[in-house]
Amino acid sequence: MSTTRLIEFRDALREGMSEEMRRDPSVFLMGEEVAQYQGAYKVSRGMLQEFGPQRVIDTPISESGFAGLGIGAAMMGLRPIIEFMSWSFSLVAADQILNNAPKMLYMSGGQFKVPIVYRGNNGAGGQLGSTHSWSVESMYANVPGLKIAIPFDPYDAKGLIKTAIRDDNPVFFLESERLLSVKGDVPEAEYLIPLGQATVRRTGSDCTIVSFGRPLYFCMEAAETLASDGIDCEVIDGRTIRPLDIETIVRSVCKTNCCVVVDQSWPFASIAAEVAAQVHERCFDDLDHHVVRVHSDDVPPAYAYNLEQEMLPNARKICEAVRTVTYNA
């Protein structure tokens, strides 16, 4: 039994990246304020000192430029970690990350792999307004050739980032500013979490709740509330969106016979819509109620605290959805 320490999410990310950089000299970290500033959110604190300026590289505010630089470097055999201070800023690099990174292998007939990790904060931060509060997962998950991972806690953050760095494909790694200070037990010994393997965060028998990343905390909160009303929820953390571990979800739905999917992106053509469709395809005869989806509301994120909280797929909305599918409304 290896020892564990209670560390922050950001420390776990840093440990994962640093371990991979010690293990493989072809891994480097590049982004805005990652080096001298010690990370806009202190994720890369100390990495410049350990690895030097050739491997921990500050860039100007030039997302299209450095997102593309990473792809060229990956085509040449390096393994770049490119930090977006916020995934909201990845929009200005959309051509590079969506048109170049995930298509290069296919367009070149298998000649050029692009083993690159793009990582940074995704989702509503805290009253950052519309332009800085993007949840990009639904939009980006539509593109074949890339993988998307969304870590839930420090343990997953470290295990998933290490696997993402070793993966030979572009991996979009979506962190949450709201979770960076969350603490959790992380083993000292090395471990990896495969991409495409969901995990059960809470076992239950009455209803399956599926989610990814930060909204899982809302799901856990809702599950506690519902438990006191005698509704026993099973909460599944998909961990990755591409690949999607639909089998774990299906197994749970076959047990509970109802399903709620919680997604922090907008409702139209969303991850939850995809998961719901696949659950309907796979579990049609097992469902007691059609799948209900809980999203951020279909509006631009507002600045005002109350409006932002109301927009998110919060515990209240999740409770309502679960009561609906379990006929406890």
């Binding site: 630089l69 792809i71 060229g72 085509m75 040449m76």
Partner: peptide
């Protein structure tokens, strides 16, 4: 930008 990445690499 890809060309710059090749040179970086």
């Amino acid at each position: 930008p890809l060309g710059v990445g090749l040179a970086f690499a």
